[in-house]
Simulated assay, not measured.
Amino acid sequence: MTSDVNQYAVGWGALALINANIAQLKGRSGLWWFLGSLIAGPVATFFLAFVEKETNDSGNAR
């Protein structure tokens, strides 16, 4: 049982790290997405997949 919980926690943490990396690639704060992913998990991944890249004032992607 403990092994199952540990594997679940490692998977959840890995997902949070992946989300932070994707967020940084899209011009978002990796730290906030990491923390949000620790709480929301796969739901945060779903939202991150549909968030557009941040743009600067001239309309260009960062």
Results as ranks from 00 to 15, higher is better:
17 L>S: 01
33 W>E: 03
33 W>C: 01
29 S>F: 00
31 L>Q: 09
39 I>N: 05
5 V>Q: 05
42 P>W: 05
8 Y>L: 15
9 A>C: 07
25 L>W: 09
4 D>L: 14
43 V>C: 07
38 L>N: 01
8 Y>H: 06
16 A>M: 02
15 L>H: 00
61 A>L: 13
60 N>Y: 13
47 F>H: 01
15 L>G: 02
21 N>D: 12
12 W>D: 04
5 V>G: 07
17 L>M: 02
56 N>A: 12
10 V>I: 10
10 V>M: 04
30 G>W: 09
17 L>A: 02
33 W>D: 07
6 N>M: 09
41 G>D: 13
40 A>V: 04
50 F>W: 06
9 A>K: 15
23 A>H: 11
45 T>S: 09
7 Q>F: 02
35 L>E: 05
29 S>L: 00
48 L>C: 05
21 N>R: 12
23 A>P: 11
7 Q>T: 13
5 V>Y: 10
61 A>V: 10
28 R>K: 15
48 L>W: 08
51 V>E: 13
45 T>M: 03
4 D>P: 05
16 A>W: 00
58 S>H: 10
20 A>E: 04
6 N>S: 04
27 G>P: 13
53 K>G: 07
34 F>Y: 15
17 L>V: 02
56 N>K: 13
18 I>S: 12
21 N>I: 04
58 S>E: 13
3 S>L: 10
35 L>W: 04
48 L>Y: 08
62 R>H: 14
21 N>Y: 03
29 S>K: 00
42 P>D: 05
23 A>N: 09
36 G>Y: 11
44 A>S: 14
38 L>K: 10
32 W>Q: 02
1 M>H: 12
1 M>A: 06
50 F>K: 07
19 N>I: 14
55 T>H: 05
46 F>N: 12
57 D>F: 14
43 V>W: 14
53 K>I: 14
57 D>C: 02
46 F>G: 13
14 A>H: 03
35 L>R: 00
2 T>Y: 03
43 V>D: 04
34 F>P: 12
57 D>R: 09
28 R>Y: 15
9 A>F: 02
48 L>A: 02
37 S>I: 04
28 R>F: 15
21 N>G: 07
16 A>P: 06
44 A>Y: 01
49 A>D: 10
27 G>S: 12
49 A>F: 08
57 D>A: 15
43 V>A: 15
28 R>L: 15
5 V>R: 05
31 L>I: 14
50 F>R: 03
42 P>K: 04
51 V>Q: 08
6 N>Y: 00
34 F>W: 14
47 F>N: 06
36 G>V: 06
44 A>K: 03
28 R>T: 11
32 W>E: 10
37 S>F: 09
53 K>R: 11
57 D>P: 11
32 W>N: 00
4 D>G: 09
17 L>I: 03
39 I>C: 03
